[in-house]
Design a protein around this nucleic acid. Structure first.
Length: 114
DNA sequence: TGGGTGACCATAG
DNA sequence: ACTATGGCCACCC
């Protein structure tokens, strides 16, 4: 791993790490924030890779634009994505986040103003 | 070198 | 409202 890896994987991780507890955001939002609106898939890819990093990435706080936990099968069966979220006070039903808009974290709004 | 594959999204029918 | 499809681009055979 060289410093070339500051590319976009690192950027994705940077953003994901900024998501506060009890909040969630989407792959597409992150992609857009990084200027790759059409490459939301790459954000998912970054998450897939994130499990092997030593740095802990709160990947459970990233869901798809419908608020569905599409990545839950990539988590430990013991500590499921859903459990992690519920532990942070987020209600989930049928793999879908309830009151999605209440918990949605928008990097544009939250990070823009400084 | 090239083709298949995604933890996605927007659009069209 | 739901399904199908194309685009996207890094990564892995």
């Amino acid at each position: 791993m060289n410093k070339k890896d500051e590319s976009f994987f690192e950027l994705v991780y940077q953003v994901v790490k900024l998501i506060p507890e009890g909040r969630i955001t989407t792959y597409g939002t992150i992609a857009k924030y990084l200027g790759m609106a059409r490459s939301a898939r790459m954000v998912g890819w970054a998450m897939n890779n994130s499990h092997k990093l030593q740095t802990r990435i709160p990947a459970h706080r990233v869901v798809n634009r419908n608020g569905v936990l599409t990545g839950k099968f990539h988590f430990d069966s013991l500590l499921s994505m859903q459990e992690l979220l519920e532990k942070e006070g987020i209600k989930i039903e049928n793999d879908k986040i309830l009151n999605f808009n209440n918990y949605f974290w928008d990097p544009f709004k939250e990070l823009k103003i400084e």
